[in-house]
Structure formats: C-alpha cells, structure tokens
Amino acid sequence: MRNQTAVVTGASSGIGAASARRLAAEGFSVICAARREDRISALAAEIGGRAIACDVTNPAAVARLAQEAGEDVTLLINNAGGAIGLEPVAEADLDAWQTMYAANVIGATAVTKAFLPTLITNEGQVIFVTSTAADGGYEGGAGYCGAKAAERAVVGSMRLELVDQPVRIAEVSPGMVRTEEFSLTRFGGDQARADQVYAGVDHPLVAEDIADVIGWIATRPPHVNIDRITVRPRAQAAQHKVHRTA
C-alpha cells in the first residue's frame, strides 16, 4: 500500500468522511475534497491526509483539485452528490433536479475526466457511490432516481470504453443508509421529516458500512474488478419493501 493516494469527494460528512477514514486505515494517503473547507481540514488533520476545497459542479475547482492532488493518485472515490426533495413529477422543482444532476452526474463525470489520465498511468481505480435509487423509480423520487441512473450509465459506459486500459471502474450502490445529513438535506433541514425516513427500521446501514465495502474494493488485486455491489440493511428487501416495527 505504499505510495497509494486516494481522492475522496464529498468528504465533509457521511459516507465520504467514513471512507476517508477507512482508506487512511488501509494505508492510503487520502485527499479529502468537499466544499466545506473547515470540515475537511479537521478530517485531514485527524487522518494525516490533505484537504482541498472543491465544488464538483465548478469546472475551475475541479481542475484545481486535479492539479493540486498531483501525479500519485491511484484511487478516486466519486461520492459527492445527494438528493433534494420528494415531490411527484407533477410538482417537480426543476431547479432541484438540475442541482442533483449537476452534482451526481456532471460533477462526478468532470472529476473522473480530470483524474483519468493519472489513474491510467498509475493503473488505478475509480469507485462511484451511486444508489439503489438507480434501480428504478419510486413515488417522489424521479429527480434523484434519474440522476443516479444517469451516473450508473456513466459507470457502465466507461468500463466498456476503457476495457483495454489498466484502470478499474467500480460501483457501490447503497440502499437505506442513515447519516447525519442525507435526509436532512433532502428535506430542507426538516429534522422530523428526515427522522421519519428511518422510523421503525431495525438497524439501517450507517456510513461506516459503506466505507467497509469501499475499503474492500480498493484493496483487491489489480486484476480484480468489482463491477457493482448493492448494499442494503437486512430490513430492506428492495427499494419499495422495508420492514418497520410498530
């Protein structure tokens, strides 16, 4: 694991922060990237990494991230993104849809494009954090489901396009993960509504569960590619089927 450098986007909280910690424990030098510089600076200090402020929807910020990260990057975790709103299509907030698409699809693609030459040279790997929302639509989820499905399409296309290149393309597709911010952001800071998402669910996943999977994928031998892993809590059999206690 010597001289292995990982870049984690969306590292200021949740799955991104947990993944940065896990990769550092695996021996990676970790570059924590996110918009909130105070948070990633604290995380970088904790794990002995580096913090580089970056909004993945800003082309100049993405270019700066790639330049400052340098030529030793062997792993990219595309984690930045998220959901906004839960309205039916008839009431869709199209500005929110554009924001979700910009971060989850365009942003992830822009960061990947910026790092791809280095990753190919270093025989590295890209891991996209998508969602089981990409599996199909659910009521109120058209915007987020569409964005994550589009991100998954990027993953699949890249794997075909780069089959002759020494770079691996993987996808982690989490189901219900309870983090401190995902649902809170989705519902505009409404804590009660965010808590209701997980009400009665016995042990939803936590960020560290997904970080464990990312750490495992990142440490497979160079000839092993993990195309996609779906990770759900036991209480969630499918996107629409969740067991809740009274």
Rank of each mutant, 00 (worst) to 15 (best):
D135R: 11
G136S: 11
G137K: 12
G137F: 07
G137Y: 10
E139G: 13
C145N: 14
G146H: 08
A149G: 15
V155W: 00
V155A: 12
V155N: 10
G156A: 05
G156Y: 02
S157D: 10
M158T: 12
M158F: 04
M158L: 15
R159Q: 07
L160Q: 13
E161G: 03
L162P: 06
P166C: 09
P166F: 06
R168C: 01
I169Q: 01
I169L: 01
E171P: 09
S173Q: 05
P174M: 03
P174V: 01
P174E: 00
P174Q: 04
V177Q: 00
R178E: 12
T179L: 00
T179F: 03
T179A: 03
E180R: 00
E181C: 02
F182C: 00
L184M: 02
L184H: 07
G188F: 02
D190N: 10
A194D: 04
D195L: 01
Q196C: 12
V197A: 15
Y198G: 07
G200Y: 10
G200W: 07
V201L: 05
H203M: 07
D209Q: 08
I210V: 13
A211M: 11
A211G: 03
D212V: 08
V213Y: 03
I214S: 04
G215T: 11
I217Y: 03
A218K: 08
R220V: 12
R220C: 11
P221H: 06
P221W: 08
P222I: 13
P222R: 13
P222E: 11
H223F: 13
V224I: 14
D227C: 12
D227P: 05
I229T: 14
